[in-house]
Design a protein around this nucleic acid. Structure first.
Length: 238
DNA sequence: AACAAGGTCAACCGCGTTATC
DNA sequence: AGATAACGCGGTTGACCTTGT
């Protein structure tokens, strides 16, 4: 699949990684972390450059990576985000836990690019303004401001609330109540629903996002409809 | 069965950004 | 404040795989 291993002029190993190298890298990072990629290969006893180690770890060895084919839901999110942000693969990858920017980029070039083009063609001949429908098996919602359609009220447990990604910025609930721009409102709502990201099962069987989230965070003056996708127990706003 | 073309995916390269001195 | 190092991102490459002829 990739070039066989070889050494460059500086004695740095390149090409495919061996099982042994993987194990060295994994065990070193598990013990010492990866605060300095430059120094890491030396300390771990690898003949690789830091960049190569980082890439291998980020794209293949780190825990919780998803392998295998993409679901229709994931593809829909990629298409949607790419439509919004262009080739910002790392940004898109942030919204798809377990998928890497590299994988998403590859998948885009091999499959989704074509689909995106086709969709553009067909949508140009359709009536504009339809925000919902035609999204494969994706669970998708549209709402205008605080839609009364979201009346499920099961609240997450405290444990679940504490279970969301620690890397996400904390929410200043004080500041969400007044004078926020539509963008800020939607951004806060997105972060809020990330609390539910750790759900593993079906969207409908998992604790639901309280209607309060929508009524509180969806900006009343945001005229544009908001597309919401459920993914891995999280809701994504577009 | 053999070949070609296109698809897939891991890895590298170059460059912009950020951190450190 | 400027120089240098390190990091991270996006584009590209190249080898293997799959499918069509």
């Amino acid at each position: 699949m990739v070039r066989g291993p070889f050494f460059d002029a500086n004695g740095v190993k390149k090409g495919a990684w061996s099982e042994e190298e993987d194990q060295k890298l994994i065990s070193f990072i598990q013990t010492h972390g990866h605060t300095n990629w430059r120094q890491l290969p030396k300390l771990a006893g690898l003949a690789r450059c830091g960049k190569s180690c980082r890439l291998r770890w980020m794209n293949h060895l780190r825990p919780n990576l998803k392998r295998g084919s993409y679901t229709a839901q994931e593809e829909e999110i990629i298409l949607k985000l790419h439509e919004q942000h262009g080739n910002k693969w790392s940004l898109i990858a942030e919204k798809l836990p377990g998928r890497t920017d590299n994988h998403i980029k590859n998948h885009w070039h091999s499959q989704l690019k074509r689909r995106s083009r086709d969709r553009e063609k067909s949508s140009s001949s359709e009536v504009k303004g339809k925000k919902s429908g035609g999204h494969n098996n994706m669970t998708k919602y549209s709402l205008e401001s605080s839609s009364p359609e979201f009346m499920e009220t099961t609240s997450p447990t405290l444990a679940e609330q504490d279970n969301y990604s620690p890397s996400l910025p904390s929410i200043d609930t004080e500041s969400t109540t007044t004078n926020n721009s539509p963008e800020e409102y939607n951004s806060v709502a997105l972060r809020e629903v990330y609390k539910f990201q750790e759900f593993s099962g079906d969207f409908w069987t998992e604790p639901f996002v309280s209607e309060d989230i929508f009524s509180e965070y969806c900006h009343p003056n945001n005229g544009a409809a908001v597309d919401i996708f459920s993914y891995d127990g999280a809701l994504l706003f577009f």
